[in-house]
Design a protein around this nucleic acid. Structure first.
Lengths: 242, 242
DNA sequence: GTCAACAATATCGTTAGCCATCTTTTTGTT
DNA sequence: AACAAAAAGATGGCTAACGATATTGTTGAC
């Protein structure tokens, strides 16, 4: 992501053709949305940690965007709940309290539960098979011990479960719910036997879906997300708590 | 809120010199959040209708905010999903499709269901009594036929149900879910016998809560919200559909 | 009379520069 | 040596001006 921006910026400066420049130059810098994406990715990668102050000039230096765009991006991120902006002090990465995270997880459990029920009810056999295949790949990840691949597949699995039945809006809400705690999510698969537990949960959900038992699928999904929360809280205690 | 802004505008509009104002008013215009609130309220009151174009200068004139702040507010509202911004065309009030509204309602049903369950489990007797009293007031509104009072109490009822058990984050999510369809909500209580039906639903929820039956409370709340959606879809068909 | 091309206006997007505010550092006094 | 006050540096906020684009109105030809 960062490279995209830099390349884009450099490219527009180095272009040779007049035509190319004519079309490339109107956008002198990266658009505000791109800057927001970049900051978001930095936060997700734990490169920007909660409480850290985001200095405008610094972001401008790194992204090549103008001050105006950077501030627009900050506003967007603040509206998303990722940043907090204080007068004359600037933007900070928002720190989500454990209680807040718990509520976000409970919300996610409810929403993904709905989607799991929908999937059990409406999804075609082909879609169910797709879901099964991804789950299978994840199991091989557990064996080979590759948590980042597991994480990617996990995201894909959850996203597909929601999008297949057309619940794009709910999926969007869920993704926003995830963002503030994504750096913890990322770390969670490295610790303990979270992967094996998650796999067990996935299997339970998949079984309910294959049997067409929507309420069971919903319940299983809820339990799965709530297990994730429980793991996260124990992780938090181990890291920061006494 | 709106009056504050208007008064502010009139004051600055009638003054003679810009310089005088700059020195006379050490406090600058309303902050971006306030402008966003104002625009939001205008949309809620159906004064800004879906598809309408929001011209920057117009908002500046009306709110007294600077162009920068207005644009910041637009960004925030776009992130909230209320507006859509197109390049060189400006901000439009976003039109929520019926499918989108349906998903928002299903999400709301799930989230408020959780809170209803929490309430049944954790709320004190005093809080339960408070909830009962509000419901009682709403019943008198049905008899006397005052829908806007009913609407206010309804908001209070739902808000209290969530906040009492500390689910502030979930309540916040729900309020954002409501915003895009609030103008329809506003109209809904004027039509048919929605008020009496809602009252019946509320009574069922309250009964489950008073008995301490959390799952029943959750289910009742879900049904209540889903009934609201059903009413809204029928209303939409009656207004626009064939 | 209608349609198309061109011009004019209005609006949006961007940048640069100035002003207000906060933080930190330095200096002076107790 | 410690604390307070003032000044300097840094940071964010705001306005004004400029360039790009869409929309609208007008004029001319078919």
């Amino acid at each position: 992501m960062a490279n995209d921006i830099v390349d884009n910026f450099v490219a527009s400066g180095n272009s040779a053709r007049m035509d190319d420049i004519a079309k490339a130059l109107p956008k002198s810098g990266p658009p505000a949305a791109e800057i927001a994406d970049w900051v978001r990715s930095q936060i997700r990668a734990n490169r920007f940690v909660p409480g850290q102050r985001l200095v405008e000039v610094d972001i401008i230096r790194r992204t090549g965007g103008s001050r105006f765009k950077v501030r627009e991006a900050f506003q967007r991120l603040a509206a998303e709940g990722l940043l907090e902006i204080e007068e004359f002090k600037g933007a900070f990465v928002r720190e989500a309290s454990l209680d807040e995270v718990a509520q976000l997880y409970r919300a996610r459990a409810a929403l993904e539960g709905i989607c799991a029920g929908d999937f059990a009810r409406q999804a075609s056999d082909a879609d169910k098979e797709k879901l099964r295949i991804i789950a299978e790949k994840m199991e091989t990840c557990v064996e080979s011990g590759s948590p980042e691949q597991f994480g990617r597949l996990n995201s894909e699995w959850h996203a597909m479960l929601m999008h297949v039945t057309g619940n794009h809006v709910i999926a969007d809400i869920v993704s926003r719910l995830n963002t503030p705690v994504h750096h913890l999510l990322f770390e969670s698969f490295y610790r303990g036997d979270r992967m094996t537990e998650a796999t067990k949960d996935h299997r339970a959900i998949l079984d309910a879906i294959l049997e067409g038992d929507a309420p069971a699928a919903e319940q299983a999904m809820r339990r799965h997300v709530e297990n994730g929360l429980q793991f996260l809280t124990s992780l938090d205690k181990a890291l920061f708590g006494t």
